[in-house]
Amino acid sequence: TRVETATETAWISLVTALHLVLGLSAVLGLL
């Protein structure tokens, strides 16, 4: 259904953003 697709997209966006933040923090930590 469309609701499931929207929820899945939201989760993917959330996980991606989380990985970006963690990756950025790791890079800044190494610097």
Score class of each variant (00 low, 15 high):
L18A: 02
V21D: 04
E4I: 07
T5M: 14
T9Y: 07
L30E: 13
V27F: 01
S25C: 13
W11E: 14
T5C: 13
T16I: 14
G29S: 05
A26I: 09
A10C: 03
A17R: 07
T9N: 15
A26N: 04
A26L: 04
S13I: 15
A17D: 07
L28K: 03
L30T: 09
E4V: 10
L22M: 08
V15F: 07
V21W: 05
L30I: 10
G23M: 11
V3T: 09
V27I: 01
V3G: 11
T16C: 09
A10W: 14
T9A: 13
G29F: 14
T1M: 03
H19D: 07
V15P: 09
R2N: 02
T7F: 04
S13T: 10
V27W: 15
L28C: 10
V3Y: 00
L22E: 04
A6P: 05
S25D: 15
A10F: 12
L22F: 05
L20C: 10
G29W: 03
A17T: 15
E4L: 07
L31Q: 04
R2E: 07
L22A: 12
R2H: 00
A17P: 00
T16Y: 14
H19P: 11
L14S: 08
H19V: 11
L31N: 01
G23S: 12
E4M: 03
L18N: 07
S25R: 05
V21F: 14
A10D: 03
S13D: 00
V3P: 07
A26E: 01
E8K: 07
E4G: 08
W11K: 00
A6C: 14
L30N: 11
T5H: 04
G23T: 00
L20Q: 07
V15T: 02
I12K: 13
E4A: 09
S25N: 15
L28E: 01
T7Q: 03
L28W: 05
A6W: 14
L20H: 01
I12R: 12
L24I: 09
S13N: 05
E4C: 14
S25I: 08
A10V: 09
T16W: 15
G29H: 00
V3A: 12
A10L: 05
S13M: 15
A10Y: 12
L30M: 15
L20V: 08
I12P: 01
A26C: 03
I12F: 08
W11S: 13
G23F: 04
V27E: 03
E4K: 10
T16P: 12
T1Y: 04
L30P: 14
W11C: 14
E8F: 03
L14T: 01
T7R: 13
T16M: 04
